[in-house]
């Protein structure tokens, strides 16, 4: 930096400091005004102004909070992956599930009367097939649910297994959803531009795969679960 530019920068710093002091001094040295009598029209106008601005501010804040709420809701939906709700987790439900698909989500209901699943630790669950480039990143157990997270170069996929229970909802808005067969049981495959989801089950457990893997790879993984 040339001396000329350095001088300019320093001069700006001095001006900024001096300006703050000057603003204080000027405000302090202003003479005290005499009280004046304002017209009724003026006072009414001021009150109207404050009232109008209060309303504007109110609507602005409502809009701001609404946007935040919408973003929060979207984040919750994305972060939660596919599970939206699960009912009566400890009750024993059955094998066959009934898939009801609406425009925004699909609901999978397990009929009562089935077998209660055994308890597994995460170490006892493995996948016989793992797509090339992916490695196990994390194992997690929450209640009856075992989750395995696999990390690839760019993307993750998540496998989870749970006792058959209650119902399961998945976000299938703007997704193509189809029923397929895995191990002679009805399964659901959902696909949209961001994420693919496969949900299937056996006699005791429901399984879920989510990630960017295609249908073929997901089917291969589904056929390779060892426990």
């Amino acid at each position: 930096m040339s001396d000329y530019k350095t001088m300019d920068k320093i001069f700006d710093v001095i001006i900024a400091e001096a300006a703050s002091i000057a603003a204080e001094n000027l405000g302090r040295n202003m003479p005290e005004p005499e009280a004046a009598e304002f017209s009724k029209e003026h006072e009414a106008t001021m009150q109207k102004l404050f009232s109008k601005e209060r309303k504007k501010l109110f609507y602005k804040k409502v809009l701001k909070y609404s946007k935040r709420a919408a973003v929060f809701l979207l984040a919750v939906i994305i972060l939660s992956g596919i599970t939206v709700f699960s009912l009566e987790a400890w009750r024993v439900k059955v094998l066959n599930f009934v898939i009801e698909t609406s425009q925004t989500h699909s609901e999978i209901n397990f009929r009562e009367g089935g077998l209660k699943g055994d308890s597994y630790t995460s170490d006892e669950i493995t996948l016989g097939y793992i797509p090339k480039g992916y490695k196990l990143e994390k194992r997690d157990v929450k209640g009856n649910m075992v989750s395995l997270v696999f990390k690839g170069e760019k993307y993750y996929f998540v496998f989870s297994m749970n006792n058959i229970s209650g119902s399961m909802g998945i976000d299938t808005e703007n997704a193509s959803v189809k029923k397929i067969i895995i191990n002679d049981q009805e399964a659901l495959y959902s696909s949209n531009s961001n994420i693919n989801i496969l949900v299937w089950h056996d006699e005791k457990f429901s399984y879920r795969l989510s990630g960017t893997l295609d249908e073929k790879e997901m089917m291969q993984i589904a056929g390779s679960v060892k426990k």
Partner: peptide, 10 residues
């Protein structure tokens, strides 16, 4: 209530 605000409003 400070000189800085006073100056600003003026």
């Amino acid at each position: 209530n400070c000189p800085r605000t006073r100056n600003f409003l003026v």
